[in-house]
Amino acid sequence: MPTHAQTIRRALPSLRREGARPWSPTVGNVKALILLAPLVALLVGFVFYPLVKLAIDSLTSDHGLRNYSDVFANASTRRALYTTLIASVIVTAITVAIGAMLAWHLVTVRSPAVRAVLWLAVLAPFWMGTVVKNYAIILFVSHDGLLNDLLAAVGIGRQQILYTSGAVVIGIVYSMVPYAVFSLYGVFAGIDQSLLSAAQSMGASRIQALRTILVPLAMPGAVASAALVFAISVGFYVTPVLLGGGQTPFMASVIQANILTYYDYGFASAASVVLLVVATAILGIALRLVGRERLVRAVA
């Protein structure tokens, strides 16, 4: 049996002076700033500075304010903006609807086999990577691709889908559904399922229970998710270029043509600012509606 008399009390290697500054359990602000310095440098240098510079350049470079009048005066740019926004709204609606149904099934499904297949379906586009995803959609919707074979088989006949805004919508939805599922899965998993059983035990039908219990509880998460899907969709580049082709007007194509082909940085920056303002407005509204916490959680 050890007794404390047997134990030699050893001084610690570092003994600080008595009466020094009170020791605080949290790390001091100076040390915290040092730890944060790389992050702050990167954020300031390559996130905030570029965005601010973009806004300033759009007002001052090349033609100054005329950059904006050019953007809005040009009929094809106006059409591109319009197409981009409408397509993004459609994408958001479809993506959140499909994402919510998939996420809800992933949360509630009992059979491990079905769950595995559903996860595989959600992850498959994710695994393919940005460009390959769009390539897969090209193969799927091309003139003699599988989708047109199906349409022909059911008597609708082959349609020109590739290089239309429809193809772009399909492509963006295909890319965004996994993200929507991830964020909505978190939302649904946080909802106590016994609430639904409780509602049904009180005589609600399944659809009533879903509408009166699940939808209100999931709404803030769904709003956050929708806002993110919209903001990201507006900025899609690869899909409009590959699936829209040269003819379909999307802002991303307009911007890249102006910057990489016509070297009109002023015009491109003004067009970019327009996209940023739209996306920021939507995210800002979502922020007011559901708060920062939910919005950040929807990203991760």
């Binding site: 570092s14 600080r16 009466g19 020094a20 020791w23």
Partner: peptide
């Protein structure tokens, strides 16, 4: 017998 306010937890024994 010694004032520990300036000491880290490690030094308080």
């Amino acid at each position: 017998g010694r004032d520990i306010s300036g000491l880290s937890p490690a030094d308080r024994s």
